[in-house]
Amino acid sequence: MSDAEGLDALSLSYKKVNKEISNVIIGQDEVIKAVLISILSNGHCLLIGVPGLAKTLLVNTVAQVIDLSYNRVQFTPDLMPSDIVGSEILGEDRSFKFLKGPVFSNIILADEINRTPPKTQAALLEAMQEKVVTVGGKSYPLPSPFFVLATQNPIEQEGTYPLPEAQLDRFMFNVTLSYPSFRDEIEVVKSTTTNTRPELHKVLTAEQILYFQRLIRNVPITDHVLEYAVSLSAKTRPGTELATPQVNKYLSWGAGPRASQYLVLGAKCHAAISGKYSPDIEDVQAVAMQILRHRVVRNYKAEAEGLSADDIIRSLF
């Protein structure tokens, strides 16, 4: 299959997956798109929203539509690293055996990741970055493909451990879920207060996802679009030559080179699922907000004036 035929197949598969998920998740089209782009780009996704917006249901549905193994880990203050990665136990033959934890799965739902101490967060984040787990001096590779879809509740901040910037940087996307519109909420209530349950069909296999991940990296990108993506990241860095006056005034820290890499990969994937063979500037802008918002740090002036990270990023377009 040529790359062009592969991209046509990717666009078609994306539409099928989207249609299946939309049978269960109503009115969250942008969120579904972001989760699927992060999976196809081999990235991880952080979903932030108040309780009851179907964050967990969305991840569950994605795992059912894509033929992948799936585990959910509920993060709590007493969760230990071994509860995620596994531990060594003494077997009947008096030798140590490694008992694999829930992280040995294709899709991990890290529910309320900010409710567990940094030591436990770090155990998952090492797995996200290295795609291996080290226990007792031995390394165990994780299954491929491997994605972490983490959720966070922005309201209750007591008893939480916010993820440090360096760890947030490992998530390709930071997706904010909003309340559904009035019409969408009527549809949600209609479909969830009866005994009928939509039947989901598996659309993609692990092999197809791995093929599409390689294919997306092969998508050609013109120099001016690549330079636009890199300049968008560079503009967020206060005190540097490309920084805008607003960035110098309101940001204390900007996005690193990983943001530029994800902007290019995200734009390639966004173009591919939209039926295009090469990304343009609109594709970069389509993914920029969700890639940059957790990689910039506002200063006290921005907070005092009520300026959000999204407002500052929007000014760079």
Rank of each mutant, 00 (worst) to 15 (best):
I25C: 04
S82I: 04
N248F: 01
L307K: 14
S178Q: 14
A255G: 09
G275K: 09
A272K: 06
A302R: 01
Q157T: 13
H201A: 01
G43Q: 04
E241Q: 11
M80A: 08
L53D: 05
A9K: 15
P77S: 14
L142G: 09
L53T: 13
D29W: 01
E20T: 02
L79E: 08
Q152K: 02
E92V: 05
A150P: 09
G49N: 11
A206P: 13
N299V: 09
F171C: 04
S278W: 05
N42F: 00
V133S: 06
V188W: 03
E207T: 09
S82D: 02
A267P: 14
Q28V: 09
A123T: 08
R217I: 08
Y211I: 07
L265R: 12
L124T: 07
K119H: 02
I25L: 06
N195W: 00
A288W: 09
P81S: 08
D169I: 12
K301T: 11
E165V: 12
N195Q: 05
Q285V: 09
A63G: 07
L46E: 10
A243N: 12
L204Q: 05
F146A: 00
G159Q: 13
A110W: 12
V264E: 09
K119Q: 03
N218C: 05
G52R: 08
Q285S: 02
A309G: 01
R237D: 08
E112D: 07
M1N: 08
K268L: 01
L265H: 06
K249M: 13
R237C: 11
L226I: 00
L68G: 00
A206C: 07
